[in-house]
Design a protein around this nucleic acid. Structure first.
Lengths: 154, 154
DNA sequence: CGCAGTAGGTTCCGTAAGGGAACCCGCTGC
DNA sequence: GCAGCGGGTTCCCTTACGGAACCTACTGCG
């Protein structure tokens, strides 16, 4: 379908969506994050079509989220690894996990747990304010125009 | 296209994507969050096709993320408001904004700023551990199977 | 040597989802 | 009684997805 281009919008949400807004990308990142880094592994684990996987990987590499790394020459084999930009994106996965755990996991409980390396506890992620370090939720903030805003909205 | 169903996967990320994984949904939530709540307003602001907007709104209402509220009978008019479930999802928007600001906003700076109501400062969002309250990034965690995991992966 | 197997894709086709524009319907105000 | 608005629905076209088949090194094995 002729998808609307989000990359040019003056909105960081839209620009993030331009990079990982299509449904498979976050799952690819998740897999790479947990160590599923090769083409066939990804394809088998996700059940994604090989064609679409090729396209996504190429896109994510072009966007600098993943890097295509050769782990064997002769035969030449590649794996996909997170860049710093990609690792930062994994924070988004944590928040998606938290929401999914709370609102979609039903009586079974969450499918995976996260252990925080620094304190050793099983925990979930919370959002805090970078200034005062207190909890900060969407309802606690107001939105103001920043330097990168343009006259056009969206 | 015959889209793969994410809702049945034993993964909170996939189940979250099932609800808001398609590119327009987060932008619709953003708009509703900032007070753009009516059909025509949303359509004009986003530039989304009316057909897709109808589908998305219906889906988000069905998922319990938005509620369709009558604000005038005779003529009957409706607006879309966030439920508690939807408000929680806006946390995800904050994190998307943070990533977009850091990695896609270029020299212009971020298009919008967030002021934290409790401390009054312009700030960004940080992820902290619910147990020890210290910063927690994706690289600081390890993943373990939870009660809702199934034998099948993904 | 010859053949199976593996990693990492590419090509082809059918279907369904997105975009855009036109249309519709109930109601209001003038 | 006609223009205008809010809130959609319908139609057609294009594009992207899913699935399966195919391809290209290269390697290991008998």
């Amino acid at each position: 379908m002729q998808r609307t281009n989000f990359g040019q919008m003056a909105c960081s949400i839209a620009r993030t969506l331009d990079v990982v807004g299509e449904p498979w990308s976050p799952l690819i990142l998740r897999d790479v994050f947990v160590g599923i880094t090769r083409f066939d592994q990804l394809q088998a684990d996700l059940g994604i079509s090989r064609k679409v996987l090729t396209e996504r990987l190429k896109w994510l590499v072009d966007q600098g989220v993943l890097a295509r790394q050769c782990y064997s020459k002769r035969p030449s084999r590649f794996e996909y690894v997170l860049t710093a930009k990609g690792h930062d994106l994994c924070d988004l996965l944590l928040v998606m996990t938290a929401w999914g755990d709370r609102w979609t996991s039903g009586s079974e409980g969450p499918p995976v747990l996260h252990r925080h390396a620094r304190c050793g506890e099983i925990s979930t992620v919370e959002l805090h304010c970078s200034a005062c370090k207190q909890p900060m939720r969407a309802r606690d903030i107001s939105v103001e125009a920043g330097p990168g805003s343009r006259s056009t909205s969206a």
